[in-house]
Design a protein around this nucleic acid. Structure first.
Length: 597
RNA sequence: GGGGCUGUAGCUCAGUUGGUUAGAGUGCCUGCCUGUCACGCAGGAGGUCGCGAGUUCGAGUCUCGUCAGCCUCGCCA
């Protein structure tokens, strides 16, 4: 920000003044941050977006100005015209960027008064989040919050500039769209013009960006708002922002190349150096090694396959799992042989809450003894084999889960993360970006008794696996890829299907009837019949990206006006009831029991 | 829908085994103070202990219910 006049009231930002401005006549404006009244002389700190500058009022030198000073309270909005003056050397404040100077005012004007705020506007105290959200506009005055919004702006600008240079064009897609099956729950918007019909808010601009490819845009991006009506988490809001990208005439390598450049630049804006190419891991390897499709590779504690040892062991619970197509995996946790029975039970309960039927373990004590609830089922040789394969040292505990593979991976993967953080195994100085590639096309959904798309229904299968579509869909890999940062999914994408028959086929595997396909996606199948280029893309979660690079646990901290965990806006008190007239126009009748609140 | 944690002054929190008038820091108000920068000093105001019931001679403290907030499981192509 330069020092040319900003507005009629303001020649300079508060935080940018320095010794080299000494002697200048300036006008500044901002909020009263602190008042220090020494009886005669009064110091007032004025804050704006850039920082703080000290104003000095001397009752002898300028009694008129001093009268106004005596009326000031915290958060009053004031305008000050005066001379930037070097402080007496011994009164410099090295903690303040403007600590070498202060302003002697010729004129002070109160532009607006302020009620006493419900909390003090500074960075020092942690305020309850619900109070901060109710008075979010005051919270945003805190430098800590402003800095996050500023970083978000800088990264978003950098992303736009990077993509613009690569000849992408930003195209806006509609927010009122058609509800689609698959995926998250849609937010519905009733149509006034068409009784009993509804728009949906987009979960992502997916279909539109593909149709932009049919439209010959070739390189599209959008900083797009997306909506999903699911329960919230620290990293999930009902509306959130995606960096949405789609390209024509590409393969997976082209997309990865673009994103590695984009992320390198984005991380740079946050002061984090990462270098491309990022490592890659297949989905299969990631699941088998880390028990997750978004592995945190900042620490080891890898999963170990002990199925072969257990298959013929005397421990029927494990052996039977292996014989019936399941698996037994283990992790070896260092130096926890001192855990009490209760601590082990807590860990078992944890694993059970992750979906495992149970947890077994072998404890290798430092004195060489071995204890285990399942010891009597295993031979000495088997225990030795396990110790060797797990590289278990004295003091370590090896945990086992036996079940179907996906249950085992999930439970042990979460247990791995639990110990990773509990035992401080995570190297916090690392910034591990990696690609997870070769996701499966489908997984079996027990609840719906059908195949569901792991990525989404427009994902192209891996060329080598196309034959599995007919024979064994679960074996079919997709041309889908996720970008993972320190165990967090930053985004994901795929090469899309551009052949209408192929797309039709995949919809059928997903259990959609011909009628449903025609009704829900007919326009898309039709579009694909008019010369659709091969295309693919990716979407990055912008909120999550900003939160992670600014070391914030919750994406609420990087969204100006977030919802709380109950999906309410505490400031505006939304959602709110609609009037009878509004509902009538929309042809909506409320169900009585839901109408009470 | 399930589980866990939390709720005491404007704000951040302490409050022992159930026991007299519920505390601290900070903010606020008043007074003093001319180089402070978390200014200092002195004094003062400020409480439905989230809400409701119960146990008890007596509940901030124990029990049950309820509301709110955060985290999490399910859910989130």
């Amino acid at each position: 920000m330069d020092n040319t006049r900003l507005t009629k009231l303001k020649t300079n930002w508060c935080g940018n003044l320095s010794a080299k401005d000494a002697g200048k006549q300036v006008s500044i404006a901002g909020w009263v941050s602190t008042i220090r009244d020494l009886g005669g002389i009064v110091f007032v700190e004025v804050r704006d977006r850039t920082g703080i500058v000290q104003i000095v009022s001397d009752p002898v030198k300028n009694p008129d100005v001093h009268k106004i000073f005596e009326q000031l309270k915290d958060e009053f909005v004031i305008h000050v015209t005066g001379t930037v003056t070097l402080r007496p050397a011994e009164t410099n404040n090295p903690n303040l960027l403007t600590g070498e100077i202060e302003i002697y005012p010729d004129k002070v004007e109160i532009l607006n008064e302020s009620k006493l705020p419900p909390f003090i506007i500074n960075d020092d105290q942690d305020i309850n989040e619900d109070l901060r959200l109710k008075y979010r506009y005051l919270d945003i005055r805190r430098p800590k919050v402003q800095n996050k919004l500023l970083l978000r702006h800088l990264i978003t600008s950098e992303i736009r500039s990077y993509l613009n240079k690569k000849e992408f064009i930003e195209v806006e897609t509609p927010v009122l769209i058609k509800t689609t099956p698959e995926g998250a729950r849609d937010y519905l918007v009733p149509s006034r013009v068409h009784p009993s019909k509804f728009y949906a808010l987009p979960q992502s601009p997916q279909i539109f960006k593909q149709l932009l490819m049919v439209g010959g845009i070739e390189r599209y991006y959008q900083i797009a708002r997306c909506f999903r009506d699911e329960d919230l988490r620290a990293d999930r809001q009902p509306e959130f922002t995606q960096v949405d990208i789609e390209m024509s005439f590409v393969d997976q390598e082209d997309i990865i190349d673009v994103i590695e450049g984009l992320l390198t630049k984005s991380f740079k804006m946050a002061g984090i150096d990462v270098s491309a190419p990022f490592p890659r891991i297949t989905h299969k390897e990631s699941m088998e090694t880390y028990g997750s499709d978004r592995p945190d590779t900042r620490f080891d504690l890898k999963l170990i396959d002990v199925s072969d040892i257990m298959e013929n062991s005397g421990f029927a619970a494990f052996a039977d799992q292996v014989k019936s197509g399941g698996t037994v995996r283990a992790i070896c946790v260092p130096d926890i042989s001192g855990y009490s029975r209760k601590e082990m039970d807590d860990i078992r309960n944890l694993v059970v809450s992750y979906g495992a039927k149970g947890l077994a373990w072998i404890t290798y004590y430092p004195d060489g003894t071995i204890k285990s609830p399942v010891l009597k089922h295993l031979t000495e040789q088997e225990i030795g084999q396990i110790q060797q394969r797990a590289h278990a040292n004295p003091g370590d505990v090896v945990f086992f889960v036996a079940d179907k593979a996906n249950v085992v991976f999930d439970a042990l993967g979460r247990l791995r993360l639990h110990f990773g953080s509990k035992l401080n195994l995570i190297d916090l100085s690392k910034h591990n970006l990696l690609w997870v590639v070769d996701f499966p096309m489908f997984e079996w959904n027990e609840e719906c008794q059908r195949h569901v798309a792991v990525h989404h229904p427009f994902t192209s299968p891996h060329p080598e696996d196309v034959t599995y579509l007919e024979t064994d869909p679960l074996k079919c890999r997709a041309q889908a890829y996720d970008i993972v940062y320190n165990g967090n999914e930053l985004g994901g994408g795929s090469i899309r299907i551009h052949n209408p028959e192929f797309q039709q086929k995949v919809f059928e595997i997903l259990g959609l009837s011909k009628e449903e396909i025609k009704e829900k996606f007919g326009f898309m199948i039709e579009a694909f019949k008019y010369g659709t280029p091969p295309h693919g893309g990716i979407a990055l979660g912008l909120d999550r990206l900003i939160a992670l690079v600014s070391c914030t646990a919750s994406i609420r901290d990087v969204i100006a006006f977030p919802k709380n965990s109950q999906a309410k806006c505490l400031m505006t008190d939304s959602p709110a009831v609609a009037s009878e007239d509004q509902l009538k126009e929309l042809h909506i009748k409320l169900m009585p029991e839901k109408n009470s609140k």
